[in-house]
Design a protein around this nucleic acid. Structure first.
Length: 800
RNA sequence: GCGGGUGUGGCGAAAUUGGCAGACGCGCCAGACUUAGGAUCUGGUGUCCCCGACAUGAAGGUUCGAGUCCUUUCACCCGCACCA
């Protein structure tokens, strides 16, 4: 039967809100559950079904937790600073504040229509000055502790967006926002010293429950490697060329060195370099290449030999040449390497091209053909000769280097410092004043928030200058220290700043004395379960873990890790199987489905369409299937007869309670819903259901289709809401039928089935099948070699 | 190149972890009710040479028994990528 979903849905959305059933209580005696979803960026395009899927998982879990008696915090907010809004503002002339408010309004109404059980009283907006006051506050704490600093360095720069980007925002050599190729540019920028926390970020992964691939991606991103630093003397100059290597054991095989073209030693000794013009040329060629071109593995090695300077292998005392090549990066290690052509493919390729000696120090390969990178016996290596264990050789060499003072053990990380400023308007102003006398001076805490000035021209400057730099009233100020004339920092924080601590603000969103009270933090933290997209694993998650660990070290938060558990949902693809995108025109708007079929149908479909963690294409026909299912549920009240649990239905109900209960915890929503469909098929076959049975059924379905379930629940005479009723429990013993139908195999092939008591013994079982007409022809006249009986599962007779 | 993952009907997918492969849903076929059906209901639906045999990317192996374990191999997806 069709039901009036739009009336039912708006009725219950209002009732829930009026009764405040989804508001988290600050009752610290209750068991708590903090479920977190990634708050959306309120873009002009509105929400798409992917947002709905991302929130539906923890929505179901949160609704279940409330019914299980937990005090649930399931909040929502808006991560509203960012470039798309600013670009839209530039295009239309509307202020980003107005655009943001409009978009937030749109997102809010869309989210409310779906009936999510968010606590709307705790909503936050990162662009609200009462919020970004605390973002600035945490930044100042970092500045005070030496974690925020300025430095001139080669940075990733997007020529289209006209901003400096962090490493994380330019993965694959492309701008994360506009996808254009980024270039390297020398610039004075703000950094957050995230590498100081690299080890803690790595270690912390051991104590949290993240999906394995999430942990793996973070480990990979941090990229810790252990090895040694070694100092090579330059011949005839009082200068050491420092390198990093993971293979100090191969030091006897070093026949040349390579530096990055940007290495500062070149500039320092340019008078000694007789071919400095060639060096300059090569350097220029490299600068022209994009990061992407430069990191292409396939291309041939290039480089220039430095004439006039040579190095000395500190262990063989042999003079060795130095080259520059772009296969050595300034940004990793020390920007210079020792080359062991016999045992490194890149060095081998380079040595072959430039005709450099190749000295074998590990036996096992044929170095006339290729580099040998496996392990083996050490040769031509002095005191290491004869050793076969790589680890021992490395340890021995390191202690030798340390003893002689020519090197020491060391670690390197792939992760770089976090470039933390953007030359844009729509972000948190960095609360720092540049004073000609005092240097960089923090804005006093009492003056926070440092507000964004209200302006009409947001156009970024051509030289990569922030729009704020053009506003004299903002720029010119007094130094908080000496009260002399000074200038404000005009760059703003990157998009990721506000989201690095938002989960803490939800706990105490209106506090104007601190970012959140210690007492409340102690109760609510850590986040019990965080769900979001894989695309945030190496950015937002690492950033926010870093901020949290910093606050932990200051004693401001109660736990060392912010998120106890992290899962990720899969994408919803367009009906054509491609990733949804505006340009392909295959984006599905959740509003259309809500209008046509209702929010409950949308929710059930999104969770039924497949494995929650995998990508699956949208199918309108399958949406209709879910609609039919809910219409059949709407019909159940018409066949209600009697009370209690019907004789033959008991195990079906207990099985269903068990499956739905455990499947939800494992994010297996598709099979939980399938089980509820199976059960309704059985109910319809019988054409009757008792009131108690229906109540159980509604409770189990309610996290998925809450509006319809509440409506039926109310119709059964309940004055309390289903949302705050209790989750049904099951009896394990009753989930199994007393008699089971098990398969009978002969030589492993199924020949029939037999009904047996679930714990019938072997003799009873074989007695039962001997008379079975289907089985007899397969065993008659043959010798029984073996009889296998697994109670409740299978009988197998092996005959010859 | 390194790391991770996935391959099961026409489609989305299940499979108690070694025990009746294809639950549940879509689609499709037939029928019913209808002036009508892209509504609803009922039945059917892996393939084939249909009493039987064959089927979980391919090829071997272990086992009474394999989608599941082992070996080899192919294809696709994701992440990182000249990381020293």
């Amino acid at each position: 039967m069709k039901y009036n979903f739009s009336a039912i849905e708006s009725k219950w959305q209002k009732k829930w809100e009026d009764a405040k059933v989804f508001e988290a209580k600050d009752d610290f005696t209750m068991p708590k559950f903090y479920g977190l979803i990634e708050f959306p960026y309120p873009s002009g395009a509105g929400m798409h079904v992917g947002h709905i899927k991302a929130y539906s998982g923890l929505e179901v879990i949160s609704r279940k937790r409330r019914m299980e008696g937990y005090n649930v915090l399931f909040p929502i907010g808006f991560d509203a600073f960012g470039l798309p809004t600013e670009n839209y503002a530039i295009k239309t002339g509307l202020h980003p504040r107005i655009v943001t408010n409009k978009n937030i309004e749109k997102f809010t109404s869309q989210l409310k229509r779906v009936g999510f059980s968010f606590d709307w009283t705790r909503t936050i907006d990162t662009t609200d000055e009462n919020y970004y006051k605390w973002t600035q506050w945490i930044f100042l704490k970092m500045f005070e502790n030496g974690l925020a600093f300025r430095d001139t360095a080669l940075v990733n720069y997007c020529p289209t967006c006209k901003v400096v980007l962090s490493n994380e925002d330019s993965q694959g050599g492309r701008c994360d926002i506009c996808k254009s190729e980024i270039i390297q540019k020398s610039k004075d920028v703000w950094y957050l010293r995230i590498t100081k926390y690299a080890d803690k970020l790595l270690e912390g992964l051991k104590e949290v429950d993240y999906l394995p691939n999430i942990k793996m991606q973070q480990i990979n991103w941090i990229g810790k490697s252990t090895g040694a630093f070694v100092n090579f003397r330059l011949k005839g100059i009082d200068e050491q060329l420092r390198i990093y290597t993971t293979r100090p054991d191969t030091l006897f095989g070093v026949t040349f060195m390579v530096m990055a073209p940007e290495h500062p030693v070149l500039e320092k000794y340019k008078d000694r370099i007789t071919n400095f013009a060639d060096v300059e040329n090569y350097k220029e060629e490299c600068a022209k290449k994009t990061e992407f071109e430069r990191t292409q593995l396939v291309k041939e090695k290039t480089g220039v030999k430095i004439e006039g300077i040579t190095a000395v292998n500190p262990i063989t005392e042999k003079e060795i040449p130095i080259y520059i090549s772009d296969y050595v990066m300034m940004g990793y290690g020390t920007g210079a390497i020792m080359a062991v052509p016999a045992h490194d493919e890149r060095d081998y390729e380079f040595a072959k091209k430039f005709g450099i000696d190749i000295v074998e120090v590990i036996k096992g390969g044929d170095i006339s053909v290729a580099a040998y990178t496996e392990s083996g016996e050490m040769v031509n290596s002095g005191f290491l000769n004869g050793l076969t264990d790589k680890k021992t050789s490395i340890e021995k060499m390191i202690s030798y280097l340390e003893e002689k003072g020519i090197g020491e053990a060391g670690v390197q990380y792939k992760m770089k410092e976090w470039a933390f400023n953007r030359q844009r308007y729509w972000g948190e102003p960095i609360p720092i004043v540049h004073c000609p006398k005092c240097g960089m001076v923090p804005v006093p805490y009492s003056e926070l928030p440092l507000r964004l000035p209200d302006v009409e021209n947001f156009q970024p400057g051509e030289g990569g200058e922030s729009p704020l730099a053009k506003i004299d009233s903002f720029v010119n100020c007094k130094c908080p220290k000496c009260n002399g004339d000074a200038k404000r920092e005009t760059d703003t924080m990157p998009q990721w700043a506000g989201s690095s601590w938002y989960f803490l603000r939800y706990i105490d969103p209106r506090n104007d004395k601190e970012f959140a009270s210690a007492e409340k933090l102690k109760y609510w933290m850590p986040v019990d379960w965080y769900n979001g997209g894989m695309e945030h694993v190496t950015r937002h998650m690492i950033y926010s873990r870093f901020w949290y660990k910093f606050l932990y070290d200051l004693g401001l938060v109660p736990t060392s890790e912010p998120y106890a558990k992290r899962t990720a949902q899969g994408l919803i693809l367009g009906p054509d199987g491609d990733k949804m995108s505006k340009s392909k025109g295959n984006v599905v708007d959740p509003n259309d489905t809500v209008d046509k079929y209702g929010a409950d149908v949308l929710r059930v479909y999104i969770l039924f369409m497949g494995d929650y963690a995998s990508a699956a294409p949208w199918s309108e026909n399958s949406v209709k299937g879910c609609k039919r299912f809910l219409e059949r549920v709407a019909d159940l009240p018409s066949i209600v007869k009697g009370r209690g649990i019907t004789e033959g239905m008991e195990s079906h109900f207990h099985k269903t309670i068990k499956k739905v209960t455990t499947d939800i915890e494992e994010l297996k929503f598709n099979t939980a819903i399938a089980q509820l469909m199976t059960l309704i098929n059985k109910i319809e076959e019988k054409n009757s259901i008792t009131k108690d049975e229906l109540e159980i059924y509604l409770k189990l379905l309610s996290p998925f289709a809450p509006h319809l379930c509440e409506e039926i629940w109310e119709g059964l005479g309940h004055s309390d809401m289903l949302a705050v009723s209790s989750w049904p429990s099951y009896d394990e013993a009753k989930t199994v039928d007393s008699t089971v139908e098990i398969a009978v195999q002969v030589n492993g092939k199924v020949r029939g089935t037999v009904s047996l008591a679930k714990n019938a013994d072997k003799d009873t079982a074989f007695e039962a099948i001997k008379s079975d007409a289907k089985i007899i022809p397969f065993i008659n006249g043959k010798t029984v070699v073996k009889e296998i009986y697994v109670p409740g599962k299978i009988i197998n007779i092996v005959v010859k």
